[in-house]
């Protein structure tokens, strides 16, 4: 069991996401930074998509009520275990009764917005429509379909793999291993969407050249951005249609909204572009108040970006396996 000690907000149980339920109006939910989730699970020898705690308001404190192994990834929150500092992006063992504390995300070369706590075996909440991810709208999955609060107790899935093996190992965060910036500003790649050509040339240029500030009205549903107004050539009323996380909608007011993991699975505002799936984790870590840049890409470029992250994860998996094999043989 894990018990939440801090008065918290917006922390949820998330796995890799819920797929196949769009037909009932249920979106994917899932970790905002899938790379962090997968890396945390890889460090523990878990299934890659196992459920974890996603924390986004700090400090965040919890107690382990069992001996177990855990991994911390995502934003570096100067974590401590019973007061002893823990390195970011690494796994550790804990004894029952130990208190884990995550502080404010550390600023530095890379500052994230969301931290992930994976545990050996994964967090055990009931599977709803194929996933343990919390979908706040409709109260599906997670712990009673809601955000975690003080006093909540979360059971752990018994670890099938037994001991995850040696744990004194960490990873270079993917944001440092595969940085993507324009003029010192975090960047993501975007494929133009159906209505791209229906915006003025100046607006299309601004999409690529402006830096877009993430406003406080940004959350797991979507990031409302502030920047130059994006103007259509003529007013558009679309028929409602399916959308996916990453779609950049432009409501009539002209300020774009990027749909994120809890996005509704359909919408009707004009779409100027879509942040590619391979870069959504980068956006998921962009703090409120920071700015992002959009880089235009095409289908082949977007697929290459997906290959790059997949290859990087494959290399992480290979090195971890190698390390475990060697350690066991010692």
């Amino acid at each position: 069991m894990i018990e939440i000690l801090s008065q918290t907000a917006l922390a949820t149980v998330q796995d890799i996401g819920r797929f196949g339920a769009l037909r009932w109006g249920v979106g994917t939910a899932g970790a905002m930074d899938r790379m962090a989730l997968v890396c945390g699970n890889l460090l523990l020898g878990n299934e890659e998509g196992a459920a974890a705690i996603e924390a986004q308001v700090f400090p965040f404190e919890l107690r382990f009520d069992a001996d177990c192994a855990f991994a911390l990834t995502g934003a570096d929150c100067a974590a401590t275990l019973d007061g002893v500092p823990l390195p970011p992006w690494s796994a550790a063992k804990t004894r029952s009764g130990a208190v884990l504390r995550l502080g404010l995300p550390v600023s530095g070369k890379w500052r994230g917005a969301r931290a992930y706590l994976c545990v050996a075996g994964g967090i055990d909440v009931p599977i709803a429509l194929g996933s343990r991810s919390t979908q706040l709208r409709g109260a599906i999955g997670g712990l009673e379909g809601r955000a975690l609060k003080q006093g909540d107790r979360l059971p752990l899935v018994p670890s099938i793999a037994g001991s995850p093996g040696p744990l004194e190992i960490g990873l270079v965060p993917p944001a440092l291993a595969m940085p993507l910036e324009v003029d010192g500003c975090a960047a993501v790649r975007v494929l133009p969407a159906a209505e791209y050509d229906c915006f003025t040339q100046a607006s299309r240029d601004a999409l690529w050249s402006a830096s877009w500030k993430i406003t406080p009205q940004s959350d797991r549903y979507g990031f409302r951005l502030a920047g130059p107004n994006l103007e259509p050539l003529a007013p558009m009323e679309m028929r409602s249609h399916g959308i996916v996380p990453g779609v950049i909608q432009v409501p009539h007011g002209g300020q774009p909204i990027v749909q994120m993991c809890d996005a509704q699975p359909s919408g009707g505002y004009p779409k100027i572009g879509t942040v590619i799936e391979a870069d959504l984790w980068r956006l998921g870590q962009a703090p409120i108040g920071s700015s992002v840049r959009f880089i235009e890409t095409d289908w082949d470029g977007a697929l290459a970006a997906g290959d790059e992250t997949r290859n990087w994860l494959a290399e992480v998996r290979r090195l971890l396996d190698l390390y475990r094999t060697r350690s066991l043989g010692r």
Partner: peptide, 21 residues
């Protein structure tokens, strides 16, 4: 179905009461 869990998009509204989002 779409938008959010269980939501239905309906056809057949009289265009006289159409109002922009």
């Amino acid at each position: 179905l779409g938008s959010h869990p269980g939501y239905c998009y309906l056809g057949g509204m009289d265009p006289r009461i159409a109002t922009p989002r």
